[in-house]
Design a protein around this nucleic acid. Structure first.
Ligand SMILES: [Zn+2]
Length: 189
DNA sequence: CGATTTTGACCCGCGC
DNA sequence: GCGCGGGTCAAAATCG
């Protein structure tokens, strides 16, 4: 984390607040991508391993590395589906829109056709597997796309005033888009 | 000192 | 089969 060279606290009304305000006025696009491709069958086996990149053979990690439910051998192939994703894009200068949850960044990759990298976050609550990825369009530096995946299994710990405002705005749009309401539903829960 | 970010390596599905 | 594009891990660095 780099130190923020900006001192927002004393900002007249530009950076911090400004960004959120922009969001309220900016356009909102909510889209829901539910697993459309079921071609997840992949060999159907979780048995990669040998990842000794130097030392440390943490064998046991399955191919996807991550899910280690290689147990209970009978029911294989069942927890692989990506949960529905809810994406919305906003106009903002900061990509860290605090939604009230605590996120731990676990990756950052550059995507093709985009000069800006995409960041991958994961909810830090134990047992909560919600993921989120933040992307910013190279074309429009001001546009940030945030995609959530999964649903939180715990209450929010922070009072998210900002987001509440945003959500309210979104609700307006939800009338047009049925999917938006679903998103909000998952969000607030 | 623990939690989180940084960052390169690795993995995997897909198209060629 | 290989390379590309996208996603994730984990060790080291960094922050609070
Ligand atoms: Zn959570």
């Amino acid at each position: 984390m780099e130190n923020y060279p900006i001192l927002f606290a004393t900002q007249p009304s530009s950076s911090t607040c400004n960004s959120y305000h922009l969001m309220s006025h900016g356009l909102f696009s909510v889209s829901q991508n539910e697993e459309l491709s079921n071609s997840k069958d992949d060999g159907g086996n979780v048995e990669r391993n040998s990842r000794h990149v130097g030392e440390e053979s943490s064998a046991g990690r399955d191919g996807g590395r991550g899910e280690a439910d290689a147990f209970v051998g009978n029911k294989k192939r069942e927890k692989k589906e990506r949960q529905p994703q809810y994406a919305f894009q906003t106009r903002s200068q900061v990509d860290i829109l605090d939604d009230g949850y605590r996120w731990r960044k676990y990756g950052q990759k550059a995507v093709k056709d985009n000069n800006f990298p995409r960041s991958y976050y994961r909810c830090t609550y134990q047992g909560c597997n919600v993921k989120k990825q933040v992307q910013r369009l190279s074309r429009d530096e001001g546009v940030v796309v945030t995609t959530y995946e999964g649903t939180h299994t715990h209450p929010i710990e922070k009072s998210n005033d900002n987001f509440e405002h945003i959500l309210t705005q979104m609700q307006v749009y939800s009338k047009l888009n049925n999917t938006s309401s679903t998103f909000i539903n998952h969000m607030f829960q």
